[in-house]
Simulated assay, not measured.
Amino acid sequence: MSQHIHSTALIAEGAVVHPSVSVGAYSIIGPDVEIGEGTCIGPHCVIEGHTRIGRNNQIFQFASLGAQPQDKKYAGEPTRLEIGDGNTIREFCTFNTGTAQDEGVTRLGNNNWVMAYVHIAHDCQVGNNTILANNATLAGHVHVGDWVILGGLTGVHQFTRIGAHAMAGFSSHISQDVPPFMMVDGNPLAVRSFNIEGLRRRGFTPARIQAVKTMHKLLYRQGLTLQAALAALPALAEKTPEAAADVALMQDFLQASTRGIAR
């Protein structure tokens, strides 16, 4: 292990660090941290708390992972931060552990591209294959679905959910739920279109893209109430069985929304 650990790095007794992990100069790893195979920790990083990091992650200099949540209710409970595999975490990112008022864990999934200065607050649940651009900030309890893209300087209000394949433009202010597939930006936030280019790049067939386009029209272009748009979705799934899973994703998201959706 010693050939991968810089002589100035401090790794506390009790930390579980795979022999293939590299740790840069002056980084500090706490006693309750677990780091998986092939992960690279840059210089001047602090990884603390009950934090588990998976395989083949690249964590750049000055990241702070696993610090206590920025929540006045936090009373020292052994809450956690869990990071999956294959993530890139750039400079000055800050990810906090969870709180007892939620599941007690903050999660980042697999293969995410997290740019500099991103903050992921307590109890956030971030999926897989997301892109969080520079200075994107997630307040507590935010849920971000797979393949979401958040533009730089975007702020997300606590308890807000962002559905899979959604995209937010630069400096967006997100305080209501963003349905799957939608493209939003601005302050106040507005839905501009649906993420057609992202869906093409992910191999969505023309039939599935057409179904998403229809869902966008039902929600935003035909003057329907949310209840009326929801009522029209089952017929769309029957008409386009190939897109049934996409329609179900939208149905589940809308029915679970408690903050209301961006409209």
Score class of each variant (00 low, 15 high):
207 A>F: 10
193 S>V: 09
184 V>H: 10
118 V>C: 04
128 N>G: 10
134 N>F: 11
155 G>A: 09
164 A>G: 01
182 M>T: 04
123 D>F: 14
96 N>H: 15
97 T>I: 13
178 V>P: 01
160 T>M: 04
167 M>E: 07
132 L>C: 02
171 S>P: 02
159 F>K: 09
123 D>C: 11
98 G>W: 12
119 H>G: 05
126 V>S: 12
130 T>C: 12
153 L>D: 09
139 A>H: 11
138 L>S: 01
108 L>Y: 05
182 M>W: 07
110 N>T: 03
162 I>N: 01
129 N>R: 13
186 G>I: 14
145 G>C: 04
171 S>M: 14
206 P>C: 09
170 F>R: 01
127 G>E: 05
101 Q>V: 13
107 R>T: 15
171 S>L: 03
96 N>S: 10
106 T>D: 07
96 N>Q: 14
114 V>I: 15
121 A>N: 13
157 H>P: 07
207 A>E: 09
181 F>R: 00
155 G>I: 05
122 H>G: 05
130 T>K: 00
197 E>Y: 06
99 T>P: 12
169 G>H: 08
126 V>D: 06
194 F>K: 04
97 T>G: 09
182 M>H: 02
87 N>M: 08
88 T>G: 00
89 I>E: 00
188 P>V: 14
140 G>W: 05
193 S>I: 03
94 T>V: 06
140 G>A: 08
185 D>Y: 13
188 P>H: 06
136 A>Y: 11
199 L>M: 15
130 T>F: 10
210 Q>I: 02
154 T>D: 14
126 V>W: 13
147 W>D: 05
162 I>A: 06
131 I>N: 05
126 V>P: 10
106 T>N: 03
115 M>R: 05
205 T>G: 13
118 V>T: 03
93 C>I: 06
132 L>I: 08
105 V>M: 02
166 A>V: 03
179 P>R: 00
106 T>P: 13
201 R>C: 06
199 L>W: 03
96 N>M: 07
95 F>Q: 09
165 H>R: 05
121 A>S: 15
125 Q>A: 10
137 T>A: 13
148 V>D: 03
194 F>G: 00
140 G>E: 11
126 V>Y: 14
91 E>W: 12
178 V>S: 03
94 T>E: 01
137 T>E: 12
134 N>V: 08
128 N>A: 08
179 P>C: 01
193 S>T: 11
119 H>I: 08
121 A>W: 12
132 L>Q: 09
89 I>M: 02
129 N>M: 10
144 V>R: 04
93 C>L: 11
107 R>D: 03
203 G>F: 10
108 L>E: 06
203 G>D: 01
